[in-house]
Design a protein around this nucleic acid. Sequence first.
DNA 1: TTTGAAAACGCAATCGATTGCCATGATTTA
DNA 2: TAAATCATGGCAATCGATTGCGTTTTCAAA
Lengths: 343, 343
Amino acid sequence: MKPKKRITIYDIAEKLNITASSVSRALNNSNHVNEATKNLVLKTAAELNYKRNLLASNLRMGKTKTIGVVVPRINQNFFSNVIAGIEDATYQKGYNLIICQSNESHSKEVKCVNTLMNQHVDCIVISVSVESDDHTHLEHVIEQGIQLIQFDRVAEELETLKVINDNETASMEAVVHLIQQGYKRIALLEGPQNLNIFKQRKTGYLNALKKFNIPVNDELIIENAWTKELGAAATRKLLSLPDPPDAIFASTSDFSALGVLDVAHDMDIKVPSQLGILGYSNEAFTEITTPSITTVDQFSVHMGKTIANLYFEEMENKEVAVTPKVISIKPQLIIRSSTLKNK
Amino acid sequence: MKPKKRITIYDIAEKLNITASSVSRALNNSNHVNEATKNLVLKTAAELNYKRNLLASNLRMGKTKTIGVVVPRINQNFFSNVIAGIEDATYQKGYNLIICQSNESHSKEVKCVNTLMNQHVDCIVISVSVESDDHTHLEHVIEQGIQLIQFDRVAEELETLKVINDNETASMEAVVHLIQQGYKRIALLEGPQNLNIFKQRKTGYLNALKKFNIPVNDELIIENAWTKELGAAATRKLLSLPDPPDAIFASTSDFSALGVLDVAHDMDIKVPSQLGILGYSNEAFTEITTPSITTVDQFSVHMGKTIANLYFEEMENKEVAVTPKVISIKPQLIIRSSTLKNK
DNA sequence: TTTGAAAACGCAATCGATTGCCATGATTTA
DNA sequence: TAAATCATGGCAATCGATTGCGTTTTCAAA
């Protein structure tokens, strides 16, 4: 089957014995066309099944109504939810989404950003990869006048729009909750400290300890324990200390919390009575483990919608001086069985 | 900060005192340019930080190296994994992905497909929504000569490329496993029968029963139980029968299996000894419930890669007569505690 | 030195849609 | 009746990259 030739405004123009200019004006609902011809054009366009060639239109207009999104991994719960939220909000405004994943690699992230710039997206939404310390690729985006919105994992020194979680407060509240439940030696599984989110969560942890005058014990703080396996390994190490912790805050993710839980099961340690476990992200599974895991919900879909709406607001007020705006969403502590020592 | 003017081939041409034609040829590594000027162009382009305007290029070339993907929900585990697989394979070939979600709505699905056609994507990859009975929008895609690839949930009557799971065999093997474990009265939670996948899974169930000469009992087959809540409701209904089932195959999803498990817990029914539970999809959580849930793995990331590679193969051999090709991936039964009655 | 082929590169059209400017004719106002 | 205003809609340039065709240059063979 040979593809039908695509209908252009010239085809419509020819058929109606007018010029493409008028067709274009009619299709764009300009008021410089006669109502009658406008209707005629619309009718003919529908009959011929005309579809506007967005490539041509975008080239001419210099904008694409497209937003590029770069995330470390598309199929990570948090990110796919954010994307779903963005899609939902942008779709309503007739915008499209181009999605890339950096796979946590800096070089791929740079390539993704370049591709998006070549595609002339109107806006780039990014959560940087764990490897990213150099942000010149993001500066290029700004130089080109493309709106840049960072979320969750952000390069803080760049003055861009940002949508973040208040990790510090959330983390502090989580640890305070543990303290109030009577846990005395609270360990922290921390993530790569070049990422703001992990640094903030650590700060929250430290603040909570300080608030209650609990001395910080470095042997209870384990670096880079951000997968299930690393969480498990860290737990084995912690529990074999002469003076082991009685609670572990897996500030990196629920996956590492799951690793903690696994090891606790293996070693026949009772959760929450002997060991409290607290995760981060409110992954679906935290609700159904035994015991269910206390965690922090980040409102990821809502975050996506916030990002999209932030873009649209900036668009509309772009004559106003654009101050680097930061929207901080306060996560919510979800208290479940794994930390309820007092009950 | 005012955006820098974008550099075009004309800027490069002017600077080097040649024409844009030569610049273009140089950038495209054509053999109709002098090696020296080619290098000069490349060097200048790098200096000026030239980026090809893909809008212009695509308009001229008539193709976009872009693939559009339409799924019911981006943030559903199976789909986000498929997307991740597609992204991985297409990225290597320099292709981009535009992602849309239909939210299981037919009208939104149609709009998504139209947008993608307007964007002149080279290929549309789709898993249809549950509402989709009318497929004229997909016929339009074919008419326009855009490659169409259906996956998982497909409109079978359309002769397109398809990548599917062998649901029937997988489902049959699942039920055979239940029978071999000694379960006698096996209930089926089925999904909307207008979707091929659910129909096939039902057929697999029926075939397994027939093979072992087990009579089909309609009161053990519950329609439309494809969420956790519906699965729970169905279970309550089944377990209150005078002669309740001793196993439930939640053929729709692991979520409905989870609903089954919840109700079993509530009613103090022992799994797997009093009730066997079998899900579908191998969601992450099935491994960590108590007991862990036997389920079917669909190799979703691999499925995504298969889809992408199928497209590239078709591209390369497009002179060969294009036969509607169907790739069927055999899912794998993952046996876990929830069905191990014999152990 | 002349001829001829190949190499290198310029010209101009093209991909479709958009839009500022101008021309035409109709309508209105003085 | 003449002048001014307005509604329509055509013309042609534009957005940047690509490419068929044609011209110029180069270099070797005759």
